[in-house]
Amino acid sequence: MSVSQPVSEIEVEITINSRRRRDRVPSRLLLSDYIRDTVGLTGTHLGCEHGYCGACTVMVDGDAVRSCLMLTVQADGAEIRTVEDLAPAGSDALSPMQQAFHDNHALQCGFCTAGFLMTLESVDPADYRHPQQVVELLSGNLCRCTGYQNIVTAVAQAWSDSTQAQ
């Protein structure tokens, strides 16, 4: 929908983790701050707020994006998924990828983890059959404490389980 006159505040309609919301937000509100402060979903972390670390990665209409490099108004009408949406609702179970991270010690402090998980959730494993492709896929997410080896191992486990299950 077009916004023909310049405005400093605007009403947006956003679906986040399957719940539709309407909020009046300042034009300058970053999507990352909307998710954390307005909606209250603090699983999305902010490391750098200028596009480098990937901690803030969420899915917008199916694509992984940096929520710190997007304005909330740009997500007007979009469907957003955050890390809170990954585990099956109403149980203590984790999603297969979360479980694989847990099993393989693919996190220490966990600050970067939500970003990795959302990047992985956004792609089709069939497009990343070669380990080098997985490494490239994850190059947009920085982890400062685990080292990447266990993360790549976790991805291999989760995705090989998923192909076996098919």
């Binding site: 077009s2 310049p6 405005v7 400093s8 034009s27 300058r28």
Partner: peptide
């Protein structure tokens, strides 16, 4: 690390965009 206040518009044609600029 937040942008300073600004106004935002989302025109539906190139000529509206040029006018806004």
């Amino acid at each position: 690390m937040k942008p300073a206040p600004f106004e935002y518009c989302r025109p539906s044609s190139v000529s509206e965009a040029v006018d806004a600029l």
